[in-house]
Nucleic acid binder design. Structure first.
Lengths: 244, 244
DNA sequence: GAGTGGTCTAGACCACCCC
DNA sequence: GGGTGGTCTAGACCACTCT
């Protein structure tokens, strides 16, 4: 009897508006940091009431895709803005004080995607990738050794100098240099013992327990863009998380 | 000139409604799992429009304090409901399959709050506490060794048999036995090496890297209720987190 | 069918920002 | 003062659940 799924077959208007706005974002009609048209303008454009546009924008704002600023307008969220700069960095000092990490680039090399990474990035195994190694320092102390893998097809012409001349977080670099906005990420955390090479970079004894944080970061439409593995010392620092 | 702060001095109606609803929840007017009055009833009671009540409930629902069910009503969220049972447990198999943890109680003993724990629980250092030790097992494998500390004043008459006879998560126990609903929690994660006693409980070699997850869990009004330290094996399991 | 939450509209007015 | 987002209202209609 159930020839078709009991599918929704009903789409609220505001969800359709969300999709239309997202499409304009993907198409680059409004760039990170810029204002989008006012609610009234969008309502006229989409032939709906302001309240419906409002609900669509509300949700996009709660997903950190847009940012509302009363009296000024609604803006495209950007990793270049100070408050969003290290939005995905959950490692922080136990003291609670603010941190300003310092980026030390170790290497950028071309390689081919392993099975695991290909799956994570939704590309073919063996596809060309960029593999980046870097260290994040806090107060001149190395704290995190990161390995970052990107599909070469999405990042043409990525070279050490281009990365090195760039000040700011990786994600503001992706945004500025390739127009790729990271929307959300998934992390899986395990505890591991530092291998000798890693230990040397972090200036600790081999075998020191480290957090191993695997991350996949996504752009619009849940498209994976970046695979990352961070090996992280937790001496005076910890991974902070809010459960709600 | 600025004798007073440029304080808000403006409270949206829906925030005041939120506070009123929360007060009714604290007072126990509606119990976990029960339905609260319909939006129309609440609107009449508070002398506001349904839309205003709606916005208040929307926010409480997004904070997982209430749960809306179309066609049925709005309910007080409860840790006893299956979907909320292990709401705060972020450790899961790498395979992604669902898990049914098994609780093994090791001990419940009376003690006094250390400085750190007193700070976390907002009680006086040296105040009486209950200290619980337990192991969480998955598929007959010990995975997490938990130490849980509760202010004795909030949990009168807590004994091993009472805990042992209870089926379900800790938080559904707090809810059922003491009317304490946990709303949110903060965690700090570090990597540590298993000490011999811990290693024995988890059936691994001493020195094995473990996640050390410190948690403070809060009830209404950001009142801390529980301090917890989990030592967690990450062999085939990991701590999963979504960054948005 | 009656009752609930969910969507959509239209309009009024408020708070905030900038000129 | 004029524009923007933020609040509040009142009412219509839709989708879902239960009886």
């Amino acid at each position: 009897m159930s020839e078709t799924l009991p599918s929704p077959s009903f789409r609220p208007l505001y969800e359709q508006i969300k999709i239309l706005i997202t499409q304009s974002l993907v198409a680059g009609e409004w760039k990170p940091g810029e204002a989008i048209p006012s609610e009234i303008e969008l309502a006229a454009r989409f032939r709906v009431s302001q309240g419906t546009v409002r609900k669509a924008i509300d949700e996009l704002a709660s997903e950190h895709i847009l940012v509302r600023r009363q009296g000024k307008g609604t803006f495209v969220a950007s990793h270049s803005e100070p408050s969003y700069q290290y939005r995905f960095l959950r490692v922080m000092p136990d003291s609670g004080q603010k941190l300003t990490p310092h980026n030390v680039l170790l290497e950028v090399r071309k390689g081919r995607a392993s099975g695991e990474i290909a799956r994570a990035l939704a590309i073919k195994a063996g596809a060309p990738v960029h593999a980046i190694k870097r260290i994040l320092e806090f107060q001149d102390r190395p704290l995190i050794l990161d390995e970052i893998v990107l599909a070469a097809a999405r990042f043409p012409g990525l070279t050490v100098p281009r990365l090195e001349e760039f000040k700011g977080s990786m994600y503001s670099f992706y945004e500025a240099a390739y127009g790729l906005r990271m929307i959300r990420a998934e992390e899986r955390i395990r505890a591991v013992a530092a291998e000798p090479g890693v230990a040397a970079h972090l200036r600790v004894a081999a075998g020191t327990p480290l957090l191993c944080v695997d991350r996949i970061a996504f752009t619009y439409g849940d498209m994976p863009v970046e695979w990352r593995r961070g090996l992280c010392l937790t001496d005076g620092f910890s991974y902070y998380n809010e459960l709600a």
